[in-house]
Amino acid sequence: MMALLEVKDLQVRVEDREILHGLSLTVNRGEVHAIMGPNGSGKSTLSHVIAGKPGYEVTGGEILFDGQDLLEMEPDERAAKGVFLAFQYPVEIPGVTTWNFLHAALNAQRKARGEAEMSSPAFLKKVREVAKSLNVPQDMLKRGVNVGFSGGEKKRNEVLQMALFEPSLCILDEMDSGLDIDALRIAADGVNALRSPDRAMVVITHYQRLLNYIVPDFVHVMSRGRVVTSGGKELALELEESGYAQFEDA
């Protein structure tokens, strides 16, 4: 079976600095991978490059998504194909209601896939169901995108989008940052409900804490722009004891 995501020997520069020096990672459908590592190890860069954020120069290697060259695609094409990045810091967009934004985004994805656009009533029904299942209050949908949302509400809004767009690859970038333990639990429950044999997840985190709630199948440790070691979920617990220092010197 073809891997869902294959990152091969990826090298990435930002301005004049190389951030990723030949990173490789293979993720299959149904798997949850955690990527851990100290600040500055390149974790967020990897997530941005997969999603197509401008400002990164890929100088070597490739990323295949379902066997297709992901780096050749615009960010919106990647989204339509099933790549979803849950942002570490979701942006606030005043003047665009969450409702409008979700409807426009969903229909843009459907259109790109050659599917029929969803009418307002059908969309309303669907988004209400999803919101209810995630305990997202209806009035959040009427407000500007993330405007005045708490950290927890912003992350819940990301999970809501994940549930609505039904991507095949979810990348969660430092989902736990800025969340207290209750908010974290709510967000993690939402993510766990989306685990499925057809869907893969890549959970990027600095702390082991998040992995108590979203339990991974595989753990990779990044340091200085490479994956330096990989293992099962027990690796995360070991790191909790020993810290990242052993890899910094590697």
Partner: peptide, 13 residues
């Protein structure tokens, strides 16, 4: 940043 967020959600440029 706002543009990228929207594009990452599937909206063409």
């Amino acid at each position: 940043n706002l543009l990228f967020y929207l594009r990452a959600r599937g909206l063409p440029e």
